[in-house]
Design a protein around this nucleic acid. Sequence first.
DNA 1: TTAAAAATATGACATTTATCAGTTCTAGAT
DNA 2: ATCTAGAACTGATAAATGTCATATTTTTAA
Lengths: 229, 229
Amino acid sequence: MESRCENCIIRQFNSLRAMSKEELKKVSDTKTTKKIKKGESIFDEGDKLNGVYCVRDGVSKLSKLSANGKDQIVKLATKGEVIGQRSVIAEETTNLSAIAVNDMEVCFIPKESITHTLHKNPDFTLEVLRHMAHDLKEADDVIVNMSQKTVKQRIAEAILYLKNNFGEDEEGFLALTLSREDISNVVGTATESAIRIISEFKKKGFIHTSGKRIGIKNERKLVELVEGF
Amino acid sequence: MESRCENCIIRQFNSLRAMSKEELKKVSDTKTTKKIKKGESIFDEGDKLNGVYCVRDGVSKLSKLSANGKDQIVKLATKGEVIGQRSVIAEETTNLSAIAVNDMEVCFIPKESITHTLHKNPDFTLEVLRHMAHDLKEADDVIVNMSQKTVKQRIAEAILYLKNNFGEDEEGFLALTLSREDISNVVGTATESAIRIISEFKKKGFIHTSGKRIGIKNERKLVELVEGF
DNA sequence: TTAAAAATATGACATTTATCAGTTCTAGAT
DNA sequence: ATCTAGAACTGATAAATGTCATATTTTTAA
């Protein structure tokens, strides 16, 4: 892969595209690339971040652990997304942990390059702001779904979300395979409940499975379910 | 109340404080002040906003209606807060409705003054960004609470939130009185469930009530409950 | 390749929460 | 002051979801 930010395609998908040539050069000169293995954490809840992470490959789950040992996954960040921005901007410790769902490659960008540009380049700041506005809308939608939809509807929605955001492989399975536990943590339910509902969907012919992999067989039915028949 | 933004105290609490004298003058010249009666809406889900609203007095609930007629309140905006920012920045229709919880006075600021400053004054843009980063963190916390806490815990938390954010009156009641229905919509539960739990708190001596008003009698117990004994 | 570990799956049951059907209270209009 | 619509409340169920116990399958790693 290309190692100069100026030439990195990933950049096209995030706010870094609003940086000037010089700003980008500085980022490129100070960034470091890291490989993170499946299951390892990029940062943990409560950490003070010294920069942001730009995802080049793989997927990370952003989640928060509760007292009773349960995890709530708030977001899945994939290729092109920048994580840790919120904490760096607000100058607070992170409220979430970032754990690799599969093997990842990320670029660490020290916060100085970012904060300097935030103060000097309104185009960049506005671009970051727009991204954050989008994230906030999504978060609001999640809140509403959590309170107004049943677990069954939320699981159906999660399956459709995985298809729309990560696609399917040649065999027709979701390209991103999450464990049943991760699915339950996205949806906010007990693992057994998630498993039970997935089995039910399988019996009804909405999906097919092979091990932990899930493939969609009847998308229409899933959509109908999400929308309440 | 003062009618020039330059002299408005409210401004101290929101991102407008990062505007320059000239920018503020322009805002002041183009803004209009509106009075909104309890129960009236400032804008509705799906509206295209031509500006933002700065709350001078009163409280607005930002909520989303679901197919089954239930409302989820995502945020309560009070004196000093600016609402509608997210939609104006993302150039999208609003995802939420804003309804007055009590009589309100708001200033409408046409979006031109805002967007112009967003492009020109990085201090302002960064200030807005910081506020949005804060809102996003709060939204994440709500998501986690919704999935990991019981209805009882969430009601206790809501009562504490109301105390911490809106204070108490001379008689020891929460200064902001929400209907039981609104409380249930904040917490994401059925109105009857909210009522039942409030009655239980009263029986246990955690709170006292008078009509719809609620006062905290044993804050420690409520805090313990939220944290899981 | 195979044993151990981890994840998935299923049943029985407990708990939480929603729903429906009423009654009582309260605030605002007359 | 009193009438009345809308809140607030309560009880009886029903439905959804969580928990615990255990069996089975899949994955991992020796």
